[in-house]
């Protein structure tokens, strides 16, 4: 296909991808509540008005803390898993990876329903009430944050030289010293990129949170969903614009971090490294 035709198709596709976020950003600075074409001006009053929207503010803080907890827990469980998958010479390596990544391709609302049902059964059987706490949400979000950490850290570990670790061992470093002084620092880029992606994915998740969020644990995406469903209000656009900015910042950041990693891979003669920010669909 001629390059011009390909370029035109790409331009159309990129325009389609930009349209929805742009609409939100434009509406967020609209002077009035009604959308005007052409716009009569711009104003930041809806951003200031966020302070009067307790549901959105509380959703924002819930999502921030949920994202932080889920990311922390995903790092604690995901980094060891990535180490095992890349350094463990396990026979069922591919199958384990497939199991860990599988929640990304299963229907989120159904997974949420499963967690909700389990929480109800747990409460009936033991009297432990988790409804109204962050626990069910954290558990559910772990399913989608662990895959991002595992994939990103494993990709990073694949490009570092295990011989370095063997040298450290032969020079007298113990297994823990080797792990913390050699292996993990060399996978730093993958760890940071995985953590950023995991946080942003948890922060924006909607399908899994919908059935699990209630009262004080309503997350920002669920609060936005409930608000846009009922009335027109540019404050929602204002808070949405903040999340768009966060997503773009995260994309730029992971691109920056993974850059040195990629050039290192390229110099050793291999092709393109898997982009930690790019969730390659797992078959």
């Amino acid at each position: 296909m001629p390059r011009i035709a390909l370029g035109a198709a790409a331009a159309v596709a990129y325009a389609v991808l930009l349209l929805a976020p742009l609409a939100v950003i434009v509406y967020s600075v609209s002077p009035g509540a009604a959308l005007e074409i052409p716009p009569s001006g711009a104003s930041l009053r809806w951003y200031a008005g966020l302070a009067d929207q307790p549901r959105l503010i509380s959703g924002l803080f819930t999502s921030l803390s949920l994202g932080a907890i889920a990311t922390g827990a995903a790092l604690v469980t995901g980094i060891p898993a990535a180490l095992a998958l890349t350094r463990g010479s396990l026979p069922g390596r591919e199958a384990c990876l497939a199991v860990l990544l599988s929640p990304l391709s299963l229907p989120g609302l159904v997974l949420g329903l499963g967690v909700l049902t389990s929480a109800a059964v747990l409460a009936n059987a033991t009297g432990i009430q988790t409804a109204g706490t962050l626990l069910p949400l954290v558990a559910a979000h772990l399913l989608i944050t662990i895959p991002w950490v595992v994939r990103s850290v494993a990709a990073s570990l694949e490009t570092t030289d295990p011989a370095l670790e063997d040298q450290a061992r032969s020079l007298g470093a113990g297994p823990f010293a080797t792990l913390f002084l050699v292996t993990l620092p060399s996978a730093r880029a993958g760890i940071v990129a995985g953590a950023v992606s995991a946080f942003v994915i948890s922060f924006g998740n909607f399908a899994m949170s919908l059935l699990l969020a209630s009262g004080r644990t309503v997350t920002l995406p669920v609060a936005i969903y409930e608000t846009v469903d009922r009335y027109q209000d540019p404050t929602v656009a204002a808070v949405s614009t903040l999340t768009i900015a966060a997503a773009v910042a995260a994309a730029v950041l992971t691109d920056r971090i993974s850059r040195p990693l990629k050039s290192r891979g390229a110099s050793s003669g291999s092709g393109r490294q898997p982009d930690p920010a790019a969730p390659e669909p797992n078959a």
Binding site: P21, V200, F206, Y225, S240, T243, A247, A277
Partner: peptide, 8 residues
């Protein structure tokens, strides 16, 4: 776009 919430 993949990092933005689907709701947004």
């Amino acid at each position: 776009p993949l990092l933005m919430s689907v709701v947004v």
